[in-house]
Write a protein that binds this DNA or RNA. Structure first.
Lengths: 196, 196
DNA sequence: CCTACCGATCGGTAGG
DNA sequence: CCTACCGATCGGTAGG
């Protein structure tokens, strides 16, 4: 399972699969498509993977881990106001979707093709992640730091907005990843500014 | 859901297909799946449709027509400020995604499985639709009615946020369609409020 | 990692 | 609208 000689090939498979899953969708991508991208025969891939779904699982969990690793610690900070935490969480989330754009797109759109068990697990992880945003917003409202909004709807609105970025972001586009991050953070912090 | 006996067969097929395309995705839904939902044999559907993709096209164009019909006239109004137009456009867009939730979800996520010609046409229509929002925002900024933001990014952010609604909206949920519409409109109008 | 193959299923058609 | 079928392709395996 952890043979080091397998690792490079396995990673190549995951990278090729991530690009194809993103372009065509998981269901419309065949094992032979992935093999062809690596100049291999279809059956040859099974020396490095147990199933097509296993590759999807690797991509999806890697992306989920990355979001948690980048955003989780910010949400857990106790030396900053909810407002400042929310701003940094938004920026960190944008940074992840732009820096692992393909994996993020697959994570966001193809996870429903996982088997029942894995889909349920990932559903739980997604809920917990969204709860990080919901809770920071709720804390901000309780502290009088943010305007009184529906925290659930607002967290969903923010994440839907940020998760749309992989569909249009281009690394050579008009806006850099950092500019997008700043502008998205500004937009939603303005939206949650207390009226006064 | 429950097709009445006097619903034309073609419409029944599109309704069943819309539900299945939304749940499983277009590529993972077979013609036999659609037929089974209507207690028919797979081949029987071809008396009412030329191809599986034709049914997708019907669903997608119907949804696109609906968005344009509801939002287009608001964007074209010349008796309201950009701010008020944007507010009503957001509300109208939310109203469409909640009132034709399944078709809207298919429109938003499955249009990439259209043939090259049709996908290109739909891509153009989507760009033109997003431009309605972009232009109203730009008008609002030019008029000093809205805060100076990147109109392109902001229009994308708003639409991504609104287009996430079909993934979590439930007609018997805590928030009504109208409440969601109002809160989304409030959120983004606050986000674009001039600082002063 | 390849060749050759498996059973299953796909979109679609013929002929009634 | 059904039965019966078409060629193509699917994910995955055997055996080297």
């Amino acid at each position: 399972m952890t043979a080091t000689t397998d690792t490079p090939r396995r990673l190549q498979i995951e990278e090729a699969a991530s690009a194809l899953f993103r372009e065509r969708g998981y269901a419309a991508t065949s094992v032979r498509d992935i093999a062809q991208a690596l100049n291999l025969q279809g059956g040859s891939l099974y020396a490095h993977m147990a199933s097509k779904e296993d590759v999807l699982w690797s991509i999806v969990t890697r992306a989920a881990d990355r979001f948690n690793a980048e955003v989780g610690p910010i949400a857990a900070r106790d030396d900053a106001t909810p407002k400042l935490k929310l701003r940094d969480m938004i920026r960190a989330h944008v940074n992840v979707v732009t820096s692992i754009q393909k994996d993020a797109a697959v994570f966001l759109h193809e996870w429903r093709f996982l088997s029942d068990d894995r889909r349920a697990e990932m559903s739980g992880r997604r809920d917990a992640y969204e709860a990080l945003f919901r809770q920071v917003i709720a804390q901000g409202i309780a502290a009088g730091d943010l305007r009184e909004v529906d925290a659930r709807l607002t967290a969903a609105a923010i994440l839907s907005s940020l998760n749309g970025i992989p569909t249009w972001y281009r690394s050579n586009g008009a806006l850099s990843s950092g500019e997008i991050a700043d502008q998205q953070a500004d937009l939603f912090l303005h939206a949650l500014e207390t009226d006064s």
